[in-house]
Amino acid sequence: MTAESTAATRPRNRKQLIVEAAGQVFSERGYHAASMEEIAAAVGISAAALYRHFPNKYALFAECADVMVDRLAAVVDESAADSTLDDVLTAIIRVTVAHRSSGGLYRWEARYLEQDDRRKLRTKFGQVISRVSEMVQREHPREDDGLRAVAALGAIGSVTMHHTSIAQRRIEELLLASALGVITVDPGAAAGSAESVELPAQPVPRTRRAEILAAAIPLFARDGFANVTNVQIAQAVGLAPSAIYRHYPGKVDILAAACLQAAGLLAQAVDRSLHQAGDPREAVIALAAAYVAYSFEHNALTSVAEAEIAGLPADLQRPLILAQREHIAVWEQQLRTARPDLDPRQARLLTHAGFGVVVEAGRALRWEDTPGHRDAVTALVTGALTI
């Protein structure tokens, strides 16, 4: 085959195809677990051809992060001067849904960006938030317009974090209703909810194994699992690095234990909250309040469990995925009791929207754990569920 014929068969949008495939692989496998060979195979090219477009995996990863934010910024910037909030949110939803499989790298994987690249990403996304905040303030004025805008975008972005299959038009309708529910929610809808939540306490480390786990969780949360070494964990506990192996076969087993602990604490919190509910709507609010309280109180543990599960081997993932499914099934059941108009898939999609609200609103509040913050985020979650 001549050079001319090879060039003729090479798609002109190959770089775009690479970025799309890479975004999906990074979202599903995590930055460190993904390989250039795997990405090249997904595009249908050789690794050598991939390196002609990107010099290394990090350069490709940074490009993926930039592309999605640029798409969101573009639809916001291109909106007409007389566009309504509904118009802008609908445009954001369509972009997010269209690139659903590759958008998930933002929520957790972006922490692996270098400082300058992370700052650029934050600035670009901040511009999107500012534009939405302005429209929220104009159409639904209140002091917390910024928080409501961030939470609404969290509800929309949640669709990148799960695989629930629904017709695209219905997804767009549900996400728009959820985002508007967040924006128009009564701030007093969950007042006092924080006071009614009784969370299980995180176990006090009384053994060496428990001490290792307690020391590892904040390190994983701060630096990312792949960047933490057994030497760092051992130093935090006051052990020689070799002593770690007496308690855990490897670092990945510490991560699995952290994720299992998170799942157990959350299951206990849910059980306690539902016992106090008097009717279906109260049950959903109680469930939301418990999830919010758990997320604030055990933030490091939660972020590790959510961010790092994709990096676990299949045998260690299995019990965690089962626990996740059981938790979501509780939400689905309670939400459908409160809203009989929803089918199971629609209820699951809205449940994930509520989770997205907690993540983004919690970050916006810097996870400062106060009763007022818990109540505010609980109200935003109930808005996202449109109950």
Rank of each mutant, 00 (worst) to 15 (best):
E63C: 15
E63I: 10
C64W: 06
C64H: 05
C64D: 01
A65Y: 12
V67Q: 05
V67I: 11
M68Q: 03
V69N: 01
V69R: 04
D70I: 13
D70V: 10
D70N: 14
D70Y: 06
D70A: 15
D70E: 15
R71V: 12
L72D: 15
L72M: 14
L72H: 15
A73W: 08
A73N: 02
A74Y: 11
V76Q: 05
D77K: 11
D77R: 06
D77Y: 02
E78D: 15
E78Y: 11
S79T: 08
S79N: 06
S79Y: 05
A80C: 04
A80R: 09
D82E: 05
T84F: 12
T84R: 01
T84D: 01
L85E: 00
D86G: 02
D86E: 14
D87G: 08
D87L: 01
D87M: 05
D87S: 03
V88K: 00
L89F: 14
L89S: 14
T90S: 04
T90R: 13
T90Q: 08
I92C: 04
I92F: 03
I92Q: 03
I93C: 00
R94Q: 13
R94M: 11
T96K: 12
T96S: 14
V97E: 12
V97P: 06
V97A: 11
A98R: 05
H99W: 08
H99C: 02
H99K: 07
H99A: 02
H99Y: 08
R100M: 15
S101C: 03
S101V: 10
S102Q: 14
S102Y: 06
S102F: 06
G103H: 01
G104N: 02
G104C: 03
G104Y: 02
Y106M: 00
Y106V: 01
R107D: 07
R107Y: 02
R107Q: 11
R107N: 07
R107L: 07
R107T: 13
W108R: 01
W108Y: 07
W108L: 04
A110G: 10
A110N: 10
A110S: 13
A110I: 05
R111M: 13
R111V: 07
Y112A: 00
Y112M: 10
L113D: 09
L113P: 07
